[in-house]
């Protein structure tokens, strides 16, 4: 039961990653690409959590927390760059 659900979930999240990647490559504007990157990191957190359940390993959480923090900082820095043309003022 659980392994079937996990298999379906892996498929769905991978499809989500592929869709996000498509938007990242296609654009058409800079905010679209940043939004795609933002979604990409949230989706990869989902994938890591699923892997953690699948392999019964808590180690994946440290990675998930790190990605959550770094991804947010990255998104903010990129938006700041678009807004001001500079990251550190």
């Amino acid at each position: 039961m659980l392994s079937t659900a996990l298999a379906i979930a892996f498929g769905l999240v991978t499809a989500a990653l592929a869709l996000t990647l498509w938007r990242l490559l296609r654009g058409p504007d800079e905010p679209d690409r940043i939004l795609a990157l933002d979604t990409l990191y949230v989706n990869s957190i989902a994938l890591l959590v699923l892997l953690g359940i699948h392999l019964s390993s808590e180690l994946y959480f440290e990675a998930a927390i790190l990605i959550a923090m770094m991804g947010f900082v990255g998104t903010v820095a990129l938006c700041k760059y678009l807004l001001r043309g500079d990251i550190i003022e």
């Binding site: 379906i8 979930a9 892996f10 769905l12 999240v13 499809a15 989500a16 990653l17 869709l19 996000t20 498509w22 938007r23 939004l35 795609a36 979604t39 949230v42 989706n43 989902a46 699923l50």
Partner: peptide, 13 residues
């Protein structure tokens, strides 16, 4: 969870 993640990215696409 997986379904909502997928729908979110579907909306993006």
């Amino acid at each position: 969870g997986a379904l909502f993640t997928f729908i979110g990215s579907l909306g993006l696409a």
